[in-house]
Amino acid sequence: MELKNAMLELLRRASTDLAPDVEKAIRQAYDNEDEGTSAKNVFGTIVENIELAREASTPLCQDTGSIICYVDFPVGESEKKYREALEWAAMEATKLQYLRPNAVDPITGKNTGNNIGINAPYMHFHQWDKPEVRVRVMLKGGGSENVGTQYRLPDAALKAGRDLKGVRKVIIDAVHKAQGYGCAPGIIGVGIGGDRVTSYALSKEQFFRTLGERSENPELAKLEEGLIEDLNKLKIGPMGFGGKTTVLGVNIGLQHRHPATYYVAISYTCWAYRRKTMIIKGSEVSYD
């Protein structure tokens, strides 16, 4: 096993091969829409595209996103090794058109052309006590990133207080404001508590959860379930054309907050919800 080639394969799969839980949810949404509606046609096109991308090994979406990578590794391993392997893989994946060059200098407007730049790809490292290495990658689209938002409770305009009822209100508000802009149906990641930075980070990490898997916290699990039902009543539908499915999932995480603050960060990902996990055990590599 060569680490850099394994990383390249991880990126290829992430970009071209939609995860089974997401595909299943999309097929259910297709079945659920009425014949002859724009919503049904959109889901039909989406399903066709999923199959084509996998078969041809081409990107599901031309916006192959920002590369966000989480590495969990055993004691004594070097972070540098993983960083170098991922950077090589990102450059190679760009050459092979698995990825679009997406790293732009904010001053000059110049695209680096290879997805490598300052904090690009962005990597999170975490040491753990297991013997294996886990590399999780998310390709986060820019259009859906733009509809993400953060609330500071209490929010007077929404009459949202510092409790789960307030959290529910701001999530409804965010999804309503997102309309179809983030390529609905979306998956909503929510981070409650923490500071400005960590609430967003927690909201993004929710995207690694399997769709349909509820929070271990019973109150959050109940909130998630209720929100999936309520948000779909908004009838924004796929692409904002109107329809029965506006969200495919709502995943909420929480962390302790400072007494003076109460942040709710909401991240939105498009239906082209690209994430893959790679486990390295000795010389064996598996992908999920």
Binding site: I46, P59, L60, C61, Q62, G143, C183, M239
Partner: peptide, 13 residues
């Protein structure tokens, strides 16, 4: 005109 967002491979065809 609205195209289907995310249908990158299909539209490229």
């Amino acid at each position: 005109l609205h195209a289907v967002g995310g249908a990158g491979s299909l539209i490229a065809k």
